[in-house]
Amino acid sequence: MNIFRLLGDMCHLVAIIILFLKIWRSKSCAGISGKSQVLFALVFTTRYLDLFTSFISVYNTVMKVVFLVLAYATVYLIYLRFRSTYNSESDSFRVEFLLVPVAGLSFLENYAFAPLEILWTFSIYLESVAILPQLFMITKTGEAESITTHYLFFLGLYRALYLANWVWRYHTEGFFDQIAVVSGVVQTIFYCDFFYLYFTKVLRGSGKMTLP
């Protein structure tokens, strides 16, 4: 554990809590991609199956359980509780275009051809692209509420901090997880355009982020 990893995990947690509270308090999931949230729930489910097979630390276990619970609670709010506020027409990204290549790649490029390893690899690849339906939705509608952009900012920051964590771990313990690092770099790149808009539009102005 290092400071980048800890801050990264905290940003990830903050992002998920921001989204959950936004939907819960406003009783609306307008502007939120339910598809991205289902993909994230799938990411956590397939990655954290090792909860049943290996114990790493109390911190590790608690965070995994919290992420899983919040991910499913968010999906529940979007698709059941506040379903009437869900913009399904704008959430039109075809997730099969992500799931099929990601599933295929996880069979081809993994550390071990074992069920849990393939599912872990699948979750890493899927996480790197899971935000695309949300970014697509914002591009399509041309705007996002500022609270939604704060969510995306913390989610992107989490990924960027994990990159710093890997640089740190490489130099201090020689740790290098090729699959996680390559996917992490890809994932962070997706946020760069958003980061630019966030700093130039949201933080300088107020209210919604509108695309040029």
């Binding site: 090792d50 097979t53 790493i56 997880d177």
Partner: peptide, 10 residues
Amino acid sequence: ADEPANHDEL
């Protein structure tokens, strides 16, 4: 032989 790796990151 193929022990699953211990993935300690979240």
